[in-house]
Design a protein around this nucleic acid. Structure first.
Lengths: 202, 202
DNA sequence: TCTAAATTGATAGTGTCTCTCGTATTAGAG
DNA sequence: CTCTAATACGAGAGACACTATCAATTTAGA
């Protein structure tokens, strides 16, 4: 799912993609070996054989190396394809399942690692809110499209907020549960959406 | 509501509280005058007449000067006092109203300023997720207490997540709405909770 | 092949935040 | 009131993320 569109046209584009992949790969490896904070940008740049300045040309911050979430893009694409008779939450739940099932082994591994870092490292966990906000907007837009409403509609936005909220509560580490298993994370998200669909009964 | 318990015992404690207040006051003033990023810790320290090192003794990061939210503490206290026959969401809504009404002029002003900064400055907005997570846990605990359930209960946590989610969607800046008015923010939160209470109908 | 644009590295910063150590201030006991 | 043990403070050095500039190299397209 992270793959580039087969033939990225020019040689220049392919080189850029390769550089980007190399930086991310070495960064994730170093994070895993030494920890996030203990790894400097200079080390990553050295390992990827670029200059530190180049690192920042590809990733605006050190955190952004981790915060590449193609998953929501795939989910949103699947959401568009869901039958219109499904309720928004049900459609979203089905789309999330499809997205999970479409992941390759490599995707799973990378997803597991980035998820672990997102939950573990405070700096990255903080940045995740930005992603959540962005994702909320996209979900709201998708719901609006499905229901023929305006994306600015208060009810639509509120529903999108609730969806993100329950996913967040299901994903964030509560106690010391180190559930980094991708399948388990998906299961928790599924449960949360099912519960929301039922009206959040206690 | 930010006031210290009348008599903070020793002279040393009072001095510390005064230093802390001075730092925060000058910091917020400078942020308002020059903007957040344009204000350095050194300037704040100079204005508060302490050394930069001392600044970091009181606030672990520059962002933490803004992220002092006594509001949720007051809300939670009010939540405990709500009659048990109210549903969790209704009780929370009533508690939020009480908390807003109990704020003094100074509290309102400071709350407005910190809210503005929280919404405007990316760095602070990012850090807010940590606060949200913490708040979610506290809300879950309160709901659990009200309903005689366990705080680890999945349904309880999920409901707390939904509450935080709709508040987030109602509070976060969507378009270019600069609604920093405290009363308006409260109104949006109230609307969101009402909508959640009704089952999020479209 | 030639030219313009894009990518890169090198360098020199700025600012947040940490650590250490010597000094000064306070709390509590005698 | 005095002495002593904590505790807060300032000063300085330094690590590291990140920015800006400029020259050199590489590529795209004619």
């Amino acid at each position: 799912m992270t793959e580039v569109p087969a033939r990225p046209a020019g040689l220049r584009e392919r080189k850029k993609a390769k550089t980007r992949a190399a930086i991310r790969e070495h960064a994730l490896r170093l994070f895993q070996q030494q920890g996030y904070a203990a790894t400097t940008v200079e080390q990553i740049a050295d390992a990827a054989e670029v200059s530190p300045a180049t690192f920042f040309r590809y990733f605006p911050t050190k955190e952004d190396v981790v915060l590449q979430d193609d998953f929501d893009i795939v989910t949103l694409a699947a959401l568009e394809a869901q039958p219109p008779e499904l309720s928004p939450v049900a459609a979203f739940r089905a789309a999330a399942m499809e997205a999970f099932n479409s992941m390759s082994e490599d995707d799973m591994a990378r997803f597991a690692e980035t998820t672990r870092l997102t939950l573990d490292v405070p700096e990255i966990r903080a940045r995740a809110l930005e992603e959540l906000r962005r994702t909320t907007e996209v979900i709201a837009a998708a719901i609006a499209r499905r229901t023929g409403r305006n994306a600015d509609d208060f009810a639509v936005r509120n529903l999108a907020g609730a969806i993100i909220g329950v996913i967040m509560s299901a994903t964030m580490p509560w106690q010391a549960e180190f559930g980094t298993d991708v399948a388990e994370i998906y299961h928790r998200i599924d449960q949360a959406l099912t519960h929301l669909e039922a009206g959040l009964p206690l």
